[in-house]
Simulated assay, not measured.
Amino acid sequence: MDTTKPLADIPQFEYYREFDKTTAEFDKANGRPKYFWYRVERDFVKKMNKEALKLHKEFDSDKQLDNLMSGKPIKKLTPPEIFKFPWKYADNIKPESEIKFGKTLWQKFTSFLMIDL
Rank of each mutant, 00 (worst) to 15 (best):
F26H: 14
F26K: 04
K28G: 00
A29Q: 14
A29N: 13
G31L: 05
P33M: 10
Y35R: 12
Y35T: 07
W37K: 12
Y38G: 04
Y38D: 08
R39Y: 06
R39A: 04
R39E: 04
V40M: 05
E41F: 02
R42D: 12
R42C: 01
D43Y: 00
D43V: 02
K46S: 07
K46A: 15
M48E: 04
K50F: 06
A52F: 00
L53Y: 01
K54F: 06
K54H: 03
K54Y: 07
L55V: 07
H56L: 12
F59I: 00
D60W: 05
D60C: 01
D62M: 10
D62P: 01
K63A: 10
K63N: 07
Q64Y: 00
L65R: 12
L65K: 06
D66F: 01
N67M: 09
L68T: 05
S70W: 11
S70D: 10
G71E: 04
G71C: 05
K72Y: 07
I74A: 15
K76V: 12
T78I: 06
T78Q: 10
T78C: 02
P79W: 12
P79V: 11
P80I: 03
E81L: 06
E81H: 07
I82V: 09
F83G: 02
K84C: 08
K84I: 05
K84S: 10
K84T: 13
F85L: 09
F85D: 09
K88D: 07
A90Y: 00
D91K: 14
K94V: 01
S97Y: 03
E98P: 00
E98Q: 11
G102E: 13
G102Q: 07
K103E: 11
K103M: 14
